[in-house]
Amino acid sequence: MERKQFELGDVVQMKKPHPCGTNAWKVIRMGMDVRIKCTGCEHSVMIPRLEFERKLKKILSHAEDETQS
């Protein structure tokens, strides 16, 4: 199975949407746990890395893409 490569500052899409209706999250902390912030309501959640990787659907934009534009 292919491992998705995500980095700090990336905007990712999770399998289930947040209750506010948004499905885009920004990665704001990485380690054994990953902290993500909802791009809609700014709510942040910290989840274990393995659970995050399992629930990650796709990477919407990379951090370096945003800094170049």
Rank of each mutant, 00 (worst) to 15 (best):
G21D: 04
N23H: 06
Q13P: 00
G31R: 12
E64I: 04
E51D: 13
I47A: 07
P19D: 14
L8Q: 03
C20A: 01
A63Q: 11
E51F: 13
K58S: 08
G31C: 10
M32K: 10
I28N: 02
G31S: 10
D10E: 00
K58P: 00
C38F: 09
H43G: 03
E7N: 11
H18W: 12
K26I: 14
V27W: 07
V45R: 11
L50T: 07
I59N: 03
R35V: 02
Q13E: 12
M1Q: 14
P19L: 14
R29T: 08
G9W: 01
E66H: 05
K26N: 15
I36W: 04
L56K: 07
M46Y: 14
I59R: 05
L60C: 07
K55T: 04
I28L: 02
K15P: 00
Q13K: 09
L50Y: 06
R35G: 01
I28P: 01
I28V: 15
D33N: 06
E2Y: 07
T39I: 12
G9A: 05
G21T: 10
I47T: 10
M1C: 08
V45N: 02
I36M: 15
R49E: 08
M46L: 10
K57S: 08
F52R: 05
V12Q: 06
I59G: 07
T22Q: 07
R29W: 02
M32V: 08
M32D: 11
H43N: 13
G40P: 03
D65V: 02
K16R: 11
T22F: 03
H43E: 10
D33P: 00
R35W: 00
P17I: 05
K55P: 00
V12H: 09
P17N: 09
F52N: 01
V12D: 07
T39F: 01
E7C: 09
V34D: 05
F52I: 02
A24M: 11
K16S: 15
P48S: 11
A24R: 15
P48F: 15
F52M: 03
M30H: 02
K4S: 01
N23F: 02
S61N: 13
S44F: 03
K57F: 09
P48M: 08
R49A: 15
